[in-house]
Nucleic acid binder design. Structure first.
Lengths: 155, 155
DNA sequence: AGCGATATAGTTGCATGCGATATAATCAAG
DNA sequence: CTTGATTATATCGCATGCAACTATATCGCT
């Protein structure tokens, strides 16, 4: 492979508008910027909101389950849950059946937020103005990408 | 609207597997986890790599142009560029034509990294194993989302 | 020239997000 | 029963990412 071939390869592969991952990255940043003013009145960040989505469905879980559900690292989820405990959203206590585990459960305040939160995704969908087909396509493409990436990250 | 209707609405809108933004968020995190071990040998983070993509195309720019290209905030891009200057990747100097601006240019080291970087997107595409159609669909869907979100974030 | 408005970067404070490492509890093989 | 391996969280250091605010330079209007 010649130096010239390297440069030609670079021209193709290194163009910003050819990157698949960059619009994903940009969309995620912009999306969180749209969520922020909607979640701030509830005292929530986007990742805290995701934790609550899981808890509102399951009632209670443990740290590892949240980590797996949200595709996060242990070093991310533990401080996140401690901040949510400080904020009165969840409780953390060791599982008496297995003292390695920590059970995460909703406080009354965390439970009550559900009644205010359910309007947020609706409001956002309306604001973005997706029609059903576009929204479904985006959902399906990104969900299948997550499934594929998850396997690769685990090796 | 009754309390019962609220809860029914919540059941639909607040399910994690119905969220459009969550798989976007998860895919971005996983994707950066895949990039990290490829970029670490070059001493780069993902956002630093994106800055270099722009500079390899344009040669030199100023801070605001990078901020706009990458859809980042001023509070993100300035410290990022200072770290890249510390790392010997770029230079920062005031524009003599307009002292408000700061010109960002590549150092020889930053320029030379292009010869090692061009294999990264290729390697990643191969690793993820997208066929051309899937990759194109993902690119198009997320790119059009970015365009739409960009308008909303600017108000 | 003078001055208020605008544009461009920088600064501060806070919340992620992750790799590497540490700690404690449970499991498993003998 | 004991001891090494495994599992479940926690901790630490570093790099983002953003809102709010600040400082400086340029522009526009008179």
């Amino acid at each position: 492979m010649t130096g010239r071939a390297h440069r030609d390869g670079a021209s193709e592969w290194l163009r910003l508008d050819r990157q698949v991952c960059f619009p994903l990255y940009a969309a995620t940043n912009l999306m969180q910027r749209l969520y922020r003013p909607l979640l701030a009145p509830l005292g929530l960040t986007y990742s805290q909101y995701l934790v609550l989505l899981v808890l509102w469905e399951r009632g209670r879980t443990h740290v590892g389950e949240l980590r797996d559900c949200l595709y996060l690292d242990a070093g991310t989820i533990t401080p996140l849950l401690k901040r949510m405990e400080q904020g009165g959203l969840v409780t953390r206590r060791r599982d008496s059946k297995d003292e390695r585990r920590v059970i995460i459960a909703l406080t009354p305040h965390g439970t009550a937020l559900r009644e205010q939160a359910w309007r947020i995704p609706e409001a956002l969908a309306a604001r973005i103005g997706f029609d059903a087909a576009e929204g479904a396509q985006l959902h399906d493409v990104t969900t299948s990408l997550v499934e594929r990436l998850q396997v690769l990250v685990k090796q």
